[in-house]
Structures are given as structure tokens and as C-alpha cells.
């Protein structure tokens, strides 16, 4: 197994002044399951293609287990990629697809056959080896594509949006399978996704790309609890941003003084609290806010609030929201441990 290190990786597509990827530094620990997260156009697919060797970087290096793979042909990198679309070879059977890489390595047919049978059982496709790709369901095709890459035991497995083409009911199953295969094989795996809930549910490490730059990397919780910038907080569903100043464990803003948790840097900043962390009723950091609107969202309700001229948004369970009447005043608390201060936007 091998750690993957990207340093100063830059890619510009012909004629554009803005880099698709700008000086990306990222270390992916050996054997980890990392999500490369970002909206469309953020450079995540570019990063993946650079690692796979399908395109060449303009600057920077890609190292795998200490050696540079930057100038190696795709087939010599030990990197296997599974695309968003399964892209099975239509002229081959399912078994022919799964065994493709081994056949290219020149392995004898009987060894390929036994490896393929084992791999098919691992992705729960036993007995479907003689089918043609077109005879499989979308989920089965995706699992065939996964098996086709995993059978090679690559040093690094790249998965491009592995869940986005699947029905919601199949997503859980596929997510489960990816986690299961990852813990069985220990292959360093990088999953590209645009969906932050998918990233946090799947990966043990997340790297967020925004506009071709690395915005933040770390365990999934940090993106909710300690986002690095307002853009990161917004990407993860943050909506409450209150400008002010942090001093001696207190944040001064239009909402009045609010107690902060320990370890927050002093100075001007943006106070943020996740909408689901706002509490109704008495408690620390109390406020009186007017209810501006109540929107039923299914499993949650969104409450729009106005306090001290500041708009706040809260998410709460619909039962609690049923007491709230538009236009009335309500007691709200901002629990100190749920507060975080972002650097002021430049």
C-alpha cells in the first residue's frame, strides 16, 4: 500500500487564463478512504484525471509511495479508475469485462477465470458472468465496473461519482459495498463527489475543492464544526453569518455579547452557528427573536428568525415548529459549544 501525495499540482486548459486546478497540495494517507469534494467546475475531476494519467499537469508533482508517477503512462501507475458512467465494454461479457485487466497482463486463462469468479462473488454478481453488460441493471453495471478495477489490486483506486447515476434506493447498498471492499482490501481509495452528505457518509477523510483550490481537508466533522472559510461553511449548508469581534472569550455583534467556546482566535470575524444547532427556549446565550417564517421541509422545518436586525435560520423537528407562529417573539439560545468564528471575508 502507498500514500499518494500531490504537490503544487496545476492544470490549465487551453486558452483559459483561470487554472482548472491551482497549486493543489494534498496528502492521502496509505489505506485511507478519502472523498474529493467540490461543486461542478471545482477541479475535482481534473485532479482525478491527473492522478490517473489521462491528462498531464502544467506544474507540480504526483508521488505514490515516495516515487513520482507524474510522467508515467496511465497503465504503469498502479492507479485504477472507475468512471461515473460504468463504461463496460459492450463486446465482452461481464466476466470478460472483470477479467480484462488481468488478460492485458497476459495471465493464463484459468487463473483469470478463478480470480473473476472470486471477484464477482465479492460484488454479489455470482452467476451473472456470462451476461452481456446491456442485460444488467444500473447497479449491477456499476458493481461490475468496480470489480473490473479492484481485481487488479491497484495501489490507488479512483472512483468518480460512484453513486450519482444510481437510484436513491441503490445508493446505500453501493456505499456499503464500497466501504466493505475498502476495509477488506485496504486499497487507498479516492472518491470524487459533488454531494457533501455522500462525502461525509462514505469517507473517513474529506478534501474540499472550491474554484480549483483546496479549501479545506480533514475528517468529515471538522467541515461542520470548524469550517475554514465562509465558502466552506456555505458549501456544507451554513447560513448564519454574523459580523463582529471576538475578545476575551466573548463575541460582540448586533446580537449583543455572546459567550464563545475556548480556543477561538481574537479579532474581527464572522460568527457562525449551524441552523440545526440553534435551540428554542431558555439556556446560555439567550436571545429574543421574531419568527419571520416557518417552512415544512419533510423531516425538518426551517424557521426564519430576525434578532437585533440580524437574520438567522434554524432547522428543527416539525413537531417543535408547530408551536411557532409567524410574527410572534420566541426565546432562542445559541449554545456556546456550537459557535465558531470565521475569518472576515476579505
Amino acid at each position: 500500500m502507498a500514500a499518494l501525495t500531490l504537490s503544487g499540482l496545476t492544470k490549465r486548459y487551453g486558452g483559459t487564463s483561470q487554472a482548472a486546478l491551482h497549486r493543489l497540495d494534498l496528502s492521502i494517507a496509505s489505506g485511507s478512504l478519502t472523498a474529493l469534494l467540490g461543486p461542478s467546475g471545482s477541479g475535482k475531476t481534473t485532479t482525478m484525471k491527473l492522478i490517473a494519467g489521462l491528462i498531464a499537469p502544467d506544474a507540480g508533482d504526483i508521488r505514490l509511495g515516495g516515487r513520482s508517477i507524474r510522467d508515467l503512462a496511465p497503465e504503469r501507475r498502479g492507479v485504477a479508475m472507475v468512471f461515473q458512467n460504468p463504461l463496460l465494454f459492450p463486446h465482452l461479457t461481464v466476466a470478460g469485462n472483470v477479467g480484462f485487466g488481468l488478460r492485458m497482463r497476459g495471465l493464463p486463462a484459468d487463473r483469470i477465470a478463478s480470480s473473476v469468479a472470486l471477484m464477482l462473488s465479492r460484488v454479489r454478481l455470482t452467476g451473472l458472468g456470462d451476461r452481456r453488460p446491456g442485460q444488467l441493471s444500473g447497479g449491477q453495471q456499476q458493481r461490475t465496473a468496480l470489480a473490473r478495477a479492484l481485481i487488479l489490486r491497484p495501489d490507488v483506486l479512483l472512483l468518480d461519482e460512484p453513486l450519482s447515476n444510481l437510484d436513491p434506493s441503490l445508493r446505500d447498498e453501493m456505499r456499503q459495498l464500497i466501504r466493505e471492499l475498502h476495509s477488506e482490501t485496504g486499497i487507498t481509495t479516492l472518491v470524487v463527489t459533488h454531494d457533501q452528505t455522500e462525502a461525509v457518509a462514505l469517507a473517513d477523510h474529506v478534501a474540499l475543492l472550491l474554484d480549483g483550490r483546496l479549501a479545506q481537508a480533514g475528517p468529515p466533522e471538522t467541515f461542520y464544526q470548524r469550517p475554514a472559510t465562509q465558502a466552506v461553511a456555505r458549501f456544507f449548508g451554513g447560513v448564519n453569518f454574523i459580523p463582529g469581534t471576538a475578545r476575551a472569550g466573548v463575541f460582540d455583534s448586533a446580537l449583543g455579547p455572546l459567550r464563545l467556546p475556548a480556543g477561538i482566535a481574537e479579532g474581527a470575524g464572522l460568527l457562525t452557528i449551524r441552523p440545526e444547532a440553534l435551540r428554542f427556549g431558555p439556556g446560555p446565550n439567550p436571545l429574543i427573536a421574531r419568527v419571520e417564517g416557518v417552512t415544512f421541509l419533510g423531516t425538518q422545518s426551517r424557521i426564519d428568525l430576525l434578532a437585533g436586525g440580524v437574520r438567522l435560520q434554524a432547522l428543527t423537528d416539525p413537531d417543535a415548529a408547530s408551536d411557532l407562529v409567524r410574527g410572534s417573539d420566541v426565546a432562542v439560545t445559541l449554545p456556546p459549544q456550537a459557535l465558531w468564528v470565521l475569518p472576515s471575508a476579505p
Binding site: 490517473a52 489521462l54 503512462a73 497503465e75 485504477a80 468512471f83 463504461l87 465494454f89 492485458m104 478495477a149
Partner: peptide, 16 residues
């Protein structure tokens, strides 16, 4: 060209 890209990432040379 995606099928070819897949084949390359699965270890096939240009000729293969």
C-alpha cells in the same frame, strides 16, 4: 474516448 481511458487505467497499453 472514455472506454479507451478506462482500458488504459486498467493497464492496457495503447496497442492493447
Amino acid at each position: 474516448e472514455d472506454h479507451e481511458a478506462v482500458a488504459r487505467s486498467l493497464g492496457a497499453s495503447r496497442w492493447q
